[in-house]
Design a protein around this nucleic acid. Sequence first.
DNA 1: CTCTGCGGGTCGTGCGGGTGA
DNA 2: TCACCCGCAC
DNA 3: GACCCGCAGAG
Length: 178
Amino acid sequence: MISEADMTLGRDYRGIDPRGWLVSEKLDGCRAYWDGSRLWTRGGKVIEAPAWFTAGLPEGVALDGEVWACRGNLQTARLAVQHGRWARHLRLMVFDSPQAPGTWPDRMAAARKALAGARHAECVTWTTCRSRAQLRAEYFRVTQAGGEGLRLRAPAVDGYERGRTSNLLKVKSPCHLH
DNA sequence: CTCTGCGGGTCGTGCGGGTGA
DNA sequence: TCACCCGCAC
DNA sequence: GACCCGCAGAG
């Protein structure tokens, strides 16, 4: 079984120098871990996903991501994951490839390759942070568009991490962005 | 001593499903 | 039918 | 998810 202990869990951003860190949007959906044949919630429950949703997910290749509808639609994702009501516009937004070696960009490249045939899954987009000002601008851009915040990845970490780590930070409040 | 980070526990919210009056 | 309480997500 | 509290290390 897959559970929280097998997944990367982040911490809160508290104002460290973000230059060089990798930035992506923090999506408000339901965490979903593909173990190569089934999807799991962070609580260790199997997600009963319809065939059209899992079609194209790579057999035997693990993926870490989020079942996501669109900004502000956490409820739509919850109805699917918890109650089996799958809206057609739901997607698996992938943000890691646990078995792939290398740094996060390496693993995202591997995930992108593995998802070549998937119609309802895609990799999240990301950029490299150049300055605090850029991070702040990105934060306000995303939140004003209805997004939850940002995720920061430490650039030099090799391999997928399990459990709590300070190499994955969430930016959910503007108060540390100065 | 104080401040900070970290782990663990608990609580709050929203929803649906099951049960009994 | 409705009011609870529980389960499970964040 | 948020919040709180106790513990340990750094300053």
